[in-house]
Structure formats: C-alpha cells, structure tokens
Design a protein around this nucleic acid. Structure first.
Lengths: 243, 243
DNA sequence: ACAAAAGTGTTTGATCTACACCCATGG
DNA sequence: CCATGGGTGTAGATCAAACACTTTTGT
C-alpha cells in the first residue's frame, strides 16, 4: 500500500481539468424520505415503481442529479414535481454509496428527509402517480436500501426533538393536544399531558390565540401559533429546545 | 414545471441499465477533516497542494472515489495513505455539491471527519508530504469550500459531546486532567474541574488504574481507561452521554 | 345528565452550578 | 519549604417525573 501514497496525493492535490479527466465519473441520485403529519399520526410517502426491474414495488421518490443543480436544488425539484409542494423543509441525512446497492449500476444516493403538513398539501395529485401515505408501523418492503434510509431518517427525526420540528409538520394554527399527538407519533410513546404542556409552554415559542378548535372535542382546544421571530432568533443564538 | 412530472418519475422509477445510461455521471470525491489531540490542544491536519492550480495552498486531504469502493472505504484508504493510520474513527459529515464549488470541474465531495490520537500516530511520515497540524484558532485559508467543511465539522464535534469522543482522541490510558483539557479544547471554554470529574465519573465508563502519570505534575495524576464493553453496551441501548 | 376531551399544580428526587481548600511531590 | 498541579464536598437552584381531578359542552 505504501507505494500508492504518491499516487493518491497527486490525485488529490491537483485539480487541473486534465487530471480530473482521468477520473471515473459516477451516477449520483437523491432520494427523499417524506414525512407527513395528518393531525393523528406521522406518515411516510411512498411511490410505486412503474417500470422494470422491481416494477410495482414500493420505493422512495428520487432522481439522478443533473449537471446544473446541487443536491438541495435537486431534492427540492423532485419533491415539487412529485407532490406539488415547494418551500418544504429538507435536510440531508447521509450518503449511501455501497458499490452494489443498486442492481441497475453504480449509483451513489444522497438521502434527504422532508417534513410536511399533510392537510395543507394539495396531495390530490398523488394518487395519480401511485403514491401512498403509510403509517410508520405499516411500511411495506422497499427496494434497494430504501428501508435503511427510512430507518435512519426516523432515528434522525427523533434526535432532532430538540428543535421545533412541529413548525414544519403542523398547520399555522394548532392545538396543544395536536402537537402532543405529533410528538407521541414521532417517539412512539405517550407523554404525560401536564408535563408536556408545561415544558412546551416554558419554551416561550408559542402564542396562544383566542380561537378554539372544536373538531375533536365538545369543549374545544385553544389554537396556538409558533412565534416565528423568536424561533429565528433562538436558532441564531444556538438555543437548544429540549423536547 | 408541471410538464416534467412524468419525466422525473420515469427517471426515478426505472432502474434498468439502459435508462441509467442516459444519465450524466459526475465526479465524486471524499475530503477528510482530520482532528488530532496532542494532550494539550485539538488540532487539524492540513496538506499543502503541490500542483497547480492553487499550488502551495492549504487543503484538506481528499481523493476521487473509485468504482469499486464505497465512500467509507475510500475515506479509510486515503487516510491510511496520507497518514499511515488505519482503524481511525471516521464519520460522514455532509455532502458538498454546489455546481461551481470546484474550479477544476463539477465535483461533488462528501466530507468525513476523523479523530485520532496525535501521540500514538506515527506521524513521522507527515512532514514529508508537506502536511501540518494546526491549532483550531490558527487555521490558514483553505482552498474551495474546505473552510466551510472544517467549520461544520467543528460544529458537529461539539454536538457530539454526548458521546464518548475522547475514546478516539485519547491514548489507552489517560488522566482526568487530560480529558478535561480535551473537552475544553473542543468547546473552547473552561470547565469547573470538580463538576467535570463528577459528571464524567458518574457515567460509569471509566476504570481507574493504580498508575499515575507524572509527566505534567509532581504529584502525578491517576491514569484511567475506558470501559469499552460498557460503552459498547450503552451504545447499543442508545444511551446518551451528556457531556 | 353524561361522555369525551381539555385544562390545571404540587411534590419528590435528580441533576446542575457555583464555589475554596488541602494534598503530594520534585526541585 | 514552596511552587505546581491533583484531588475533593456541599448548598442552593433548576429541572424532570409522577400523579388525579375539574371544566366545558354537544348530544
């Protein structure tokens, strides 16, 4: 191995176009793990493959990246094209690069996860493309390493508890019971409602409105909004929201 | 944009080789942010470019990935070849993909960071390759987006405080003052030594030996080891080490 | 009037922070 | 014997967890 040191260094260190020319290029894709919350449950958006091989199998949505776009732009584009949504929250998860991960050839895929509000989304288009929302505990078998991508995304989502995720998964106005259900859905466990409210309100990022949502109880629950300015400011000051 | 939906879906959904064939391939590289701890300070390993363009500028070590290796393997290889080290801790950071990030052509780079013990490393080789260790607050200008990679790596390192990082940066046996200096070096602030020790010891992952290290005081400080089995077990059980 | 969901406080233990002195040793 | 770095404990504040009843209102 010793002998290859110079070899590697010359490759690394020189960036003249002719040197790059000697290198092997590779297909690069993005795959999107799209989570949606419908007010009751966290769901995952999957698409049915329409072509061989693996036709009919469930899969994440993805695409190869083009020469004139970076990864984030590519992910935004494909999300927009597949769901009609733009301005969605998108985060890089990790890169999947095993040599034989894709039976169709050598493809490196960068996984992104995304959080959207299920109601707000005009997801009318979706059925047309054989897409469906799945409960997290009823995810079907997925192609390639997509299962692993989903698992890692869920793990990441749970780790991110200390950021106001709800922001992306909830509508403008929402009730405290709703946000609690969301967190219970993410962590797959129940929280004590008194402690949950106390902690949430103590963060000082919620604004109580005087309206009530009576869609799920006779008494009705107060609607809250996120205090966006405050969240921005806290993010800049590197606050940790411990939820 | 509406019109391209079918286009994208067909690209995504079909993975037959002939379809992949239509896609543009791209150069993919790995760049390694190598941190080392010498017992006093956290340092960053940088390499001097030997060729044009940007000859003489400081840079992270990196290489294009080959067809027969995944990213992790590529990163391990280049680290081994440039530092002589194997079995080092390596973590994917994120992917840098801006279209014009590299003046030599379209290159997507996946950044990895790595933690090593500076003493243990036979870094004798390094000077030969015009490599140098830099204090974190004396990092020179770097090529391309390498500066940004380093910044993100440091941020990540700080976030990872809740994992026993020291494991990778410290020698087999180390003293409590040493590990405190390490953390102070990572977070660039001082900790109260009573509180620091209390917390560290309360994790139950350290084994006190009856030996002392007198290299930095007359009294000498007890040497400790990590309890590797316990750390393994805790990692499996998804423990959080809050440091 | 009752079922169903919303809302509310207190106590207990755990953890975090701030803080100052004695110890062991080599020179 | 003294300078240097290593080692130790406690009190007050803050935070997390456990726990049960009252309120509202549509039917």
């Amino acid at each position: 191995m010793e002998k290859s040191i110079n070899n590697v260094l010359s490759v690394n260190v020189s960036e003249a176009t002719e040197v790059y020319g000697e290198q092997k290029k590779i297909l690069v894709a993005v795959d999107c793990i799209v989570f949606g919350f419908d007010g009751k449950e966290l769901k995952l958006l999957l698409f049915k493959r329409k072509v061989e091989p693996l036709k009919g199998a469930w899969s994440l949505i993805g695409a190869f990246i083009k020469e004139d776009m970076n990864l984030e732009e590519s992910a935004e584009k494909i999300l927009f094209e597949s769901t009609g949504l733009d301005q969605v929250y998108l985060q890089e998860l990790k890169t999947f690069s095993n040599v034989n991960r894709d039976s169709g050839g050598r493809v490196i895929s960068v996984a992104f996860y995304s959080l959207i509000q299920l109601k707000k989304s005009k997801t009318d288009k979706l059925p047309h493309y054989e897409a469906r929302w799945f409960s997290l505990n009823k995810i079907p078998d997925l192609i390639l390493d997509h299962q692993q991508m989903v698992e890692e995304a869920i793990k990441e989502l749970r780790k991110k508890g200390n950021q106001p995720i709800g922001f992306n998964l909830l509508p403008e106005k929402f009730t405290l019971p709703q946000i609690q259900v969301l967190y219970e859905s993410i962590y797959q466990k129940e929280f004590d409602n008194r402690n949950f409210r106390k902690k949430l309100l103590s963060l000082g990022i919620l604004i109580k409105t005087d309206k009530k949502d009576k869609s799920s109880s006779k008494k009705g629950a107060y609607l809250y909004e996120f205090n966006k300015e405050k969240i921005e400011k806290m993010a800049v000051e590197k606050y940790d929201f411990g939820l």
